[in-house]
Design a protein around this nucleic acid. Structure first.
Lengths: 148, 148
DNA sequence: TTGACACGGTCAGATGATCTGACGATATTG
DNA sequence: CAATATCGTCAGATCATCTGACCGTGTCAA
């Protein structure tokens, strides 16, 4: 699919490492904080829930999975008390998935670790390079994220 | 795990989009070229096979999965004729996984698409920004890739 | 207003990917 | 040579993911 380990790697593969590293760090911190019943896939869904709740279909679209998969993961998150489903006042067909109390607590932990890891990366790369990296990635997102 | 869609996203999440986009493009191209029996997970393993073959344990380490998972995926790749296992001349315990003829053909297709997608990204971001992005990601890999 | 179609979500079933734990065979090292 | 580490596999379980079918609700145009 791409190179062996030694050669120049494509940008997609290079993006894999930081993504995976961040995810692993957050998951580890969550587990250490007592949120040990959350999986990576659940986290990827939960990470895309907006402040006022998000529709299942939107979650699926943002996470690039089918709505069935998203539904499955939301079921688990709901059972574990991280999220809740409420009716969407603007559309009787839809329901909004939003953070429950336990979910908000987990988000707080996740945010802290995110900031911590970013700080480490910034310390290693330097402020300027990091800012450039972020800008480039945000720009790239415009053409690689089918949702936004 | 992180923000809703609107807010500022952490660098890990931002890395997700290009990675996923590249992977999807390569997979689609492979399927179109007749290599339609390969999955993303198989591709992630195959992408890490070096020119002269690579040990299963190394593949697992590079792809950040257990050796059991790697073995499972290599089994499938072998059954589909993409790779072959040969004895490691330097160690009777080990075997080297290396590309078979069909695998090499698939790699050729993948390389072409990689280059194509990178060219698109470069056109969108500009030469300079893209070079900066690559440099930053390569640097970041030093502290986020447990293997290298 | 009503019929055709789009959209939000779920159910059912299948497959794929991944892990933990245990194990046999070979290397390495003191 | 004995102790220990490494390489890979087997077995079994669980989680994630997809396709296809389906029901209820919204939308829009004739």
């Amino acid at each position: 699919m791409s190179d062996g380990a030694a050669d120049r790697q494509n940008l997609g593969v290079l993006c894999f490492y930081p993504h995976r590293a961040m995810e692993a760090r957050i998951l580890a911190a969550l587990a250490a904080a007592g949120f040990d019943d959350i999986t990576a896939a659940q986290g990827r869904i939960a990470a895309r829930i907006g402040r006022d709740g998000t529709r299942l279909t939107d979650l699926a679209e943002r996470a690039l999975v089918t709505k069935q998969t998203a539904g499955h993961l939301v079921d688990q998150l709901e059972r574990s008390g991280y999220v809740e489903r409420v009716p969407d006042p603007t559309d009787a067909r839809a329901r909004l998935v939003r953070m429950a109390r336990r979910g908000q607590a987990a988000v707080a932990v996740a945010r802290r670790v995110e900031a911590e890891v970013e700080a480490e990366w910034t310390a290693y790369l330097g402020e300027e390079v990091t800012a450039g990296l972020r800008a480039a990635l945000e720009r790239l997102r415009e053409i690689t994220d089918p949702f936004r």
